[in-house]
Design a binder for these strands. Sequence first.
DNA 1: TCCCAGCGTGAGAATGATTGTCAAAACCGA
DNA 2: TCGGTTTTGACAATCATTCTCACGCTGGGA
Lengths: 141, 141
Amino acid sequence: MTDRGASARPARRPTRQQQAITDLLERSEEFVSAQTFHARLRAAGERVGLATVYRTLQSMVEAGTVDVLRGDDGEAAYRACSTDHHHHLVCRSCAKTVEVEGPAVERWTDAVAAEHGFTQVTHTVEIFGTCAECAASTRTR
Amino acid sequence: MTDRGASARPARRPTRQQQAITDLLERSEEFVSAQTFHARLRAAGERVGLATVYRTLQSMVEAGTVDVLRGDDGEAAYRACSTDHHHHLVCRSCAKTVEVEGPAVERWTDAVAAEHGFTQVTHTVEIFGTCAECAASTRTR
DNA sequence: TCCCAGCGTGAGAATGATTGTCAAAACCGA
DNA sequence: TCGGTTTTGACAATCATTCTCACGCTGGGA
């Protein structure tokens, strides 16, 4: 559709705000919502507008350096991720995230799609559960 | 946590509105957003409030007779589905949906989760693509 | 180093889906 | 039909996200 071609994206002009966002992103192990993200930046003394947080995260998603996850309530959560295609195993309780790969799943989705005549296939696979730590603390409670 | 036990759910009292919603739901082949759903009911001459549409769809989701899907924009879409666990192959263009099962995927997710010590595992797997018909018409355009 | 043209920012308004409120209406059993 | 509940629906309230647009900062050229 749109020509998302080669030299097209000129990389945003680097600014203090973007640096702050990138830093915090890299220090976060789990998926964080844009709102929470903004709150943390503010708490850390950074002066960054909410709109900027959204804009920056969004462009990073397009650039492929950040992954998005939609919770049951529809709120988007972000996390720094490698460019490679992979999926996530997320703790329902503490949001701890493990990146996982599943060649078998990739093959399966492609096969299923082809079988029904679908092309330009993409897919989402996310696994939710309770991590060992959270399970332990819940049981103790 | 909460005891979502046996005889708990007393089934809502049947009403004209719920009947209308159920009917339209069963006649829909694809995922439809609550807003669209409401608009269609109105267009069909049914007098149903938006809040009622949301409430009814929600309780059906909890009852397991309806599946939800979150689009990229976070908007929720609904579709009548069998109670059995399954996944969806959805056309990006016309929203036509095919229900698919993937024992392999189920096994894989469980294995991955167990490997990392996660319990109470659930997962989401959705496949998006362009169906044969839409691919054809797009190419022709 | 100074200046200019733009891009990036940010405060607040606008949007749009979803949920809450609460009085009125519908339903069911007696 | 009567009474006690449950459900409904118009509208307000939330809340995340996006839009607006004047202002500041950045980078390159003079």
